[in-house]
Protein backbone atom coordinates (compact mmCIF):
# COMPACT_ATOMS: atom_id res chain seq x y z
CA UNK A 1 0.00 0.00 0.00
CA UNK A 2 1.41 3.42 -1.01
CA UNK A 3 1.60 6.20 1.56
CA UNK A 4 -1.17 8.06 -0.29
CA UNK A 5 -3.44 5.02 -0.06
CA UNK A 6 -2.56 4.64 3.60
CA UNK A 7 -3.45 8.30 4.23
CA UNK A 8 -6.78 7.95 2.41
CA UNK A 9 -7.59 4.82 4.39
CA UNK A 10 -6.75 6.62 7.65
CA UNK A 11 -9.05 9.51 6.72
CA UNK A 12 -11.93 7.03 6.82
CA UNK A 13 -11.51 7.07 10.60
CA UNK A 14 -12.37 10.78 10.74
CA UNK A 15 -16.11 11.21 11.18
CA UNK A 16 -18.40 14.16 10.67
CA UNK A 17 -19.73 14.25 14.27
CA UNK A 18 -23.11 15.61 13.16
CA UNK A 19 -23.81 13.02 10.47
CA UNK A 20 -21.82 10.07 11.83
CA UNK A 21 -20.31 9.39 8.37
CA UNK A 22 -16.58 9.48 7.60
CA UNK A 23 -15.25 12.36 5.51
CA UNK A 24 -14.06 10.13 2.64
CA UNK A 25 -17.45 8.48 2.15
CA UNK A 26 -19.09 11.91 2.41
CA UNK A 27 -17.00 12.97 -0.60
CA UNK A 28 -15.35 15.84 1.23
CA UNK A 29 -11.79 14.95 0.21
CA UNK A 30 -10.73 16.59 -3.07
CA UNK A 31 -7.12 15.53 -3.01
CA UNK A 32 -4.11 14.30 -1.02
CA UNK A 33 -0.71 15.66 -2.05
CA UNK A 34 2.50 14.30 -0.58
CA UNK A 35 5.90 15.90 -1.26
CA UNK A 36 9.39 14.40 -1.10
CA UNK A 37 9.55 15.00 2.69
CA UNK A 38 6.26 13.12 3.12
CA UNK A 39 4.54 16.34 4.16
CA UNK A 40 0.82 15.91 3.43
CA UNK A 41 -1.64 18.48 2.15
CA UNK A 42 -5.27 17.35 2.36
CA UNK A 43 -7.50 19.47 0.13
CA UNK A 44 -11.10 19.16 1.12
CA UNK A 45 -14.43 20.92 1.36
CA UNK A 46 -17.36 20.88 3.76
CA UNK A 47 -21.00 20.06 3.06
CA UNK A 48 -21.90 23.73 3.47
CA UNK A 49 -19.73 26.86 3.40
CA UNK A 50 -19.02 27.90 6.95
CA UNK A 51 -19.91 24.51 8.42
CA UNK A 52 -19.15 25.06 12.13
CA UNK A 53 -17.34 21.74 12.39
CA UNK A 54 -14.41 22.76 10.19
CA UNK A 55 -11.95 23.07 13.10
CA UNK A 56 -13.04 19.76 14.58
CA UNK A 57 -12.64 17.94 11.28
CA UNK A 58 -9.23 19.57 10.68
CA UNK A 59 -8.08 18.49 14.16
CA UNK A 60 -9.37 15.00 13.47
CA UNK A 61 -7.36 14.79 10.23
CA UNK A 62 -4.13 16.08 11.82
CA UNK A 63 -4.47 13.81 14.84
CA UNK A 64 -5.25 10.72 12.80
CA UNK A 65 -2.43 11.26 10.27
CA UNK A 66 0.06 11.97 13.08
CA UNK A 67 -0.23 8.31 14.01
CA UNK A 68 1.31 7.25 10.67
CA UNK A 69 5.09 7.22 11.22
CA UNK A 70 6.05 8.07 7.63
CA UNK A 71 3.90 11.20 7.49
CA UNK A 72 5.68 14.56 8.00
CA UNK A 73 3.80 17.80 8.43
CA UNK A 74 0.07 17.82 7.78
CA UNK A 75 -1.80 20.75 6.28
CA UNK A 76 -5.56 20.87 5.75
CA UNK A 77 -6.62 23.13 2.90
CA UNK A 78 -10.36 23.83 2.93
CA UNK A 79 -11.87 25.10 -0.33
CA UNK A 80 -15.38 26.04 -1.48
CA UNK A 81 -14.72 25.71 -5.19
CA UNK A 82 -15.89 23.35 -6.52
CA UNK A 83 -18.73 23.20 -3.98
CA UNK A 84 -19.64 19.91 -2.37
CA UNK A 85 -22.27 17.91 -4.18
CA UNK A 86 -24.22 14.86 -2.91
CA UNK A 87 -23.13 12.91 -6.00
CA UNK A 88 -19.65 12.81 -4.41
CA UNK A 89 -20.95 10.61 -1.58
CA UNK A 90 -20.29 6.88 -1.65
CA UNK A 91 -23.23 4.48 -1.96
CA UNK A 92 -22.57 3.42 1.64
CA UNK A 93 -22.93 7.02 2.87
CA UNK A 94 -26.11 7.57 0.84
CA UNK A 95 -27.58 4.36 2.22
CA UNK A 96 -26.62 5.33 5.78
CA UNK A 97 -28.28 8.75 5.48
CA UNK A 98 -31.34 7.81 3.44
CA UNK A 99 -31.85 4.18 4.48
Amino acid sequence: MSLKEEVLEALRDVLDPELGVNIVDLGLIYGVDINENNDVVVTMTLTTPGCPLHDSISHGIRNRLAVIDEVGKVDVNIVWDPPWDPSRMSEAAKKFLWG
Binding site: L15, P17, E18, G20, P52, D55, H59, R62, N63, L65
Partner: peptide
Amino acid sequence: PFLWWTHKYSEKSGKEEVPLLK
Protein backbone atom coordinates in the same frame (compact mmCIF):
# COMPACT_ATOMS: atom_id res chain seq x y z
CA PRO B 1 -24.35 19.75 21.99
CA PHE B 2 -22.44 21.37 19.14
CA LEU B 3 -21.01 24.06 21.46
CA TRP B 4 -19.97 21.51 24.07
CA TRP B 5 -18.64 18.96 21.60
CA THR B 6 -16.48 21.62 19.93
CA HIS B 7 -15.13 22.70 23.33
CA LYS B 8 -14.50 19.27 24.82
CA TYR B 9 -13.94 16.83 21.98
CA SER B 10 -12.77 18.84 18.97
CA GLU B 11 -9.04 18.46 19.71
CA LYS B 12 -9.42 14.81 20.73
CA SER B 13 -11.01 13.88 17.41
CA GLY B 14 -8.79 11.46 15.50
CA LYS B 15 -6.70 10.69 18.64
CA GLU B 16 -9.26 8.69 20.54
CA GLU B 17 -12.85 7.58 20.19
CA VAL B 18 -15.16 10.55 20.66
CA PRO B 19 -18.95 10.63 20.85
CA LEU B 20 -21.14 11.94 18.05
CA LEU B 21 -23.14 15.12 18.67
CA LYS B 22 -26.36 13.17 19.12
